[in-house]
Amino acid sequence: MGIGETLALGSAAAWAVGVILARQLGAYLPPLALNLLKNALVLCVLAPAVLVLHAGQWPAVPARDLAIVLASGIVGIALADTLYFRALNELGAGRMGIIGNLYSPLVLLLGFVFLDERLGAAQWLGFGLVGLGVLLVSRPPGEWETHPRHTVRGIVIGMLAIALMAVAVVMVKRILEAQPLLWVTMIRLAGAVAGLLALAAWPAMRARMRFDPGRVPWQRLVLAALIGQGLSMVFWLGGYKYTSASVAAILNESASVFLVVLAALWLREPLGRRAFAGVLLTFSGIACMLLGRATP
């Protein structure tokens, strides 16, 4: 298993740990405020670390590439995550989990068109197994007993969020390959925080930023941000840097499966037969992805 595949799977696992840590934060923080605080916390930790590791030397990043990385953060984090949380509130986790399955097909399509990437037979088999496994674990029957008032609007918003995430990572793929990973991560995160601050300053969004600081479990927030946002983001971009975007995207899909497994082991949540079958299918698909080689 190469470093790119390892980082892509590590990103999925770190994201799942972050979700479990942050599962109750939504009761104290509105989505936009939570998104801004998590990314700002990571930036405050990552920026000094990058400056120390690189001895304060700024990499030779062309102005065009710098603009693309900043735009990727605005599009893929500030806009996409905000829309994702909005769709999640309207549709619920089950329906949003199904829409989230659009991510890897979109990255495959964009990688084919813009990056000239191809998958081998083993990767296509793995893609099918991972997709089926994720579908099983992300569609609990109970979720479908609810009837959202704005289903169509929620679906459109959710699909737009996933599409923006895919576009944002593909647009920065070639720059990632040529530039230091941590520098690109920091610049992209700076763009995201700037975009989120602009959203928060928008009069229509100010009411969505209100919360009681005294009720926020800050220690849990910091831990969830550093693991689920910071570590996961570095691993996520590292996966795209060191392997093809198509392979990284498919392996990222295992995040929901890691979440189910960790919830069963950590939170003692029951693992039903459907979820267990989904876990087996997903890890079988991962094995196929790792056994084959993608053609760049």
Rank of each mutant, 00 (worst) to 15 (best):
G94F: 02
A93R: 04
L88Y: 00
L102M: 15
S104T: 12
R95S: 04
V107F: 12
G94Q: 11
F85S: 04
G100D: 11
R86I: 06
Y103M: 12
Y103E: 10
R95A: 13
G97E: 03
F85Y: 09
Y103T: 15
M96Y: 00
I98N: 10
L109I: 14
G94A: 15
E90N: 02
L88N: 00
F85R: 06
G111Y: 06
S104I: 09
L102E: 05
A93L: 08
P105H: 11
L102D: 04
A87R: 01
F112L: 15
L102P: 08
G111A: 15
G92D: 01
A93W: 02
G92Q: 03
F85Q: 08
L91A: 10
Y103G: 11
L109N: 10
G97N: 09
L109M: 13
A87S: 14
A87G: 13
M96A: 04
L88F: 00
L108E: 03
F85P: 05
L109T: 12
L108M: 13
L110H: 03
G94D: 03
M96T: 05
V107M: 10
F112G: 07
V107P: 11
M96I: 04
G97V: 06
N101R: 14
A87C: 03
A87T: 01
L110T: 03
I99L: 15
R86M: 05
V113D: 13
F114K: 03
L115S: 08
